[in-house]
Nucleic acid binder design. Structure first.
Lengths: 142, 142
DNA sequence: ATATAAATTATAATTATTCTAAACTGTTGA
DNA sequence: TCAACAGTTTAGAATAATTATAATTTATAT
């Protein structure tokens, strides 16, 4: 459980003003035991459940993007109509449950020896993401 | 270079009527030497360049989804405002060039021994996709 | 040929996201 | 302390991809 002053320091140190909206969003995102996988909509709902004044949707978008750019959030590649974010910024991979549209972290021992042996000339690798799509065993796939 | 009659057979055999729109789309998608990575917009533009009568955008969407459901196309996971599709339906992975928003197939020898050792209980694995995001070496990442 | 189901179409509707411009707030330094 | 300025928030409009609708057209089986 992080203190408010810790969030203030963190934001200031990365050049973001610690506004009350951002502090609230920090609290919702980072005061958790487990990784939080969310869409903007999940986050907005989560905030409004915990708060009587509302935070504008535009601010939620702005803040999530600011946090992503500062490296406090990761965006996860899923071909979907929405973007997914992850509070776990360590190098790790995901299952995506197509039944529930839910992301699940892969434990380290799920993927063995992932090793990229070549790269495109003149480019640097920014990220390597593995996405394992799963669905209920008895589901009709048509 | 596949013949029209081959596309007709293929469509019929999967329960899709071989309409002239679908045949034209088959031609654009599958009469190629190399894998085609595309967005709906890419495809629509490609069609309209080759055709004097137009195919409705709704039909392009319908057809791409039908082909995907029949397994003639793969959808690639990228967090982007658009969906990307691939005519290469074999098991393979991708680079995504963030400078140009372009997908590039990974050769088989790029990723070594990708091995999924565990799965979510009660689910079956539908796909495993690796996406390697790259960008120009000297690019500012903020 | 004709009936029927499937497909196409233009257009409207929906949804996620970004933009805009005005109001507000945090911070700096006189 | 407080004025000024840049950074932030905000509601709502704008944009863009995609899906839905409902009428028309087409493929095919009889």
């Amino acid at each position: 459980m992080l203190k408010n002053s810790e969030f203030i320091d963190k934001l200031r140190s990365s050049g973001l003003r610690p506004t009350k909206q951002r502090l609230k969003i920090c609290e919702v995102l980072f005061n958790r035991d487990k990784t939080f996988h969310f869409t903007i909509n999940d986050l907005a709902k989560n905030i409004s459940e915990q708060l009587n004044e509302k935070i504008s949707l535009a601010t939620v978008y702005n803040t999530v993007h600011a946090f992503k750019n500062k490296g406090y959030l990761k965006e996860i590649s899923i071909n979907s109509d929405k973007s997914y974010f992850d509070t776990n910024i360590t190098n790790h991979h995901h299952f995506f449950d197509e039944d529930s549209n839910e992301l699940i972290d892969c434990d380290e021992d799920v993927i063995e020896n992932l090793n990229i042996k070549k790269n495109i000339t003149g480019k640097k690798i920014n990220s390597v993401e593995v996405l394992i799509k799963v669905a209920s065993d008895n589901q009709n796939q048509n």
